[in-house]
Amino acid sequence: MPVEPTAARSVFAQEVPPELLAQARHGDMQAHAELYRRFAAPVFNLALRVLGERTAAEDVVQEVFLRVLARVRRYRGEAPFGLWLRRLAVNATIDQLRSRRFLAETDMDALLAGLGAPGPLPEEQAEALALLMRLPPQARAVVVLHELEGYTHAELARMFDQTESYSKSILSRALARLRRRLGREGIGLESLP
């Protein structure tokens, strides 16, 4: 089954045994628990990176796995299961983004405290998270979905009911903002486009 190169790098692009999917289609809760074990963290992290709130991200996880339970019978295998599920996760995240007011910037300390992180994050991880959380939520969505999940501008435009140039402009402004931050903070400026 052909998978776009960027999509293939997504954490969602993992193989799922056909027999596990067959059991899930028959409503086997053990099989659903196994799908949750494999995909809950990728869904949670995608939503968390965009929404910047633990409870909102957990709402997305709950919504996605309830949808999987209700709709897995309709999954026909046209795309790998993980990418089908990723689409559910992206849609649920965008729904959250539209239905709630999120702060333009997320307070890193509050976010990490809410996540119950056992200790400080390694420097590189903390920097990456802090940079992302300084973007407004919609820009975070475009950056995460385009740069990490490999969605094209055409796909993003459809998701957000906007034009392709809108998505390109959001991404370009977000990257410029990240570049300025990196420059100001002296972090790996040369590695940005």
Partner: peptide, 14 residues
């Protein structure tokens, strides 16, 4: 290149 930096993002569990 930005993606390489973003890939350093930490992973959390629900």
């Amino acid at each position: 290149p930005t993606a390489a930096q973003l890939r350093a993002l930490p992973h959390f569990a629900p």
